[in-house]
Amino acid sequence: MNATKAENGFNWQRMVLKLYPFFVLGLLLIFFGVLTKGTLFSSRNIKNILESSFQYLIGCMAALFIFAQGEQDFSMASNIALSAILAAMISKTSVPLALVVALVSGIAVGCACGFLYARLPIPVFFLTMCIANVIAGFLGPMTNYQSVKTPVSMLNLDNTNLKLLVAVIFAVIIYVIYNKTTYGKYSRAIGASPVVARLSGINLSRYKFAAFVFTGIAAGIVAFFSICKSGGASKATGTMFHFNVMVAMALGGATTGGPKVKFRCAVIGPLIISVLTLGMNLARIPVGMQNLMKGVLFLAVMVLSDRLSRFDVD
């Protein structure tokens, strides 16, 4: 029936369902723009939106491949904490070296997760949770249960323009790999059916491994900019990051992983969360009501997502 409609003309319902995250973001911008009498669009608040969504933009984009493969990475928060602490420790010697350490640490943990994911027949959420716990266990003794401070000069690197540039470059790279290379296509194929993908000759281990390298890179980037932002790192750095990435991806339209996960999900989701959080605070909505509104919005997204899957919109 749907196919018939589509053949006969433009299917509005299908279009709305396909682009609903954009509508949600647009409605939120209009709603809070009116409610805050335009304050939401002041340069400072635009900057606030970009600042607060930066780390989740990076995290969501990197997690696209794992989501496409129908899995999730629960080790990202611990990976960020470890990378941030190591980078903060080395930052007293050299700030560029701190960036390198953050990236190497993030990638190393990503590789460890990827290797085990590719080799062991353990559910990935369980595997990454175990790795997260192992890392968390190290963090306390490693830091002597203290925060690690960075040189104050690093706070100057907390620059919105720099973050924007990094996010754009990262987005272009991820977009190309996800949409234009065989790696992106094969990741989606694995998400659709690992068995079929394997029988089609796809090297599952290789693609599974690489997916975690991306989240490792993201963890390194987020860790570095986190210590630039706060002036230090502790075992609390990055807390709940993986959970927030999942929520952002869901709001962006990727409530379930698999081949239907689109690049746009990773961009729209973090922006929706940032606009929602900032808008409610600027509109002085009481905290209890804020939680209620978030709950209603999340529920609405779930219902829409369910409709989406029934219509098989791709």
Partner: peptide, 14 residues
């Protein structure tokens, strides 16, 4: 938005 120092710094900006 959360309980990390980064979340509180974002809230401070707000």
């Amino acid at each position: 938005a959360g309980n990390t120092p980064d979340d509180y710094l974002d809230a401070l900006d707000t």
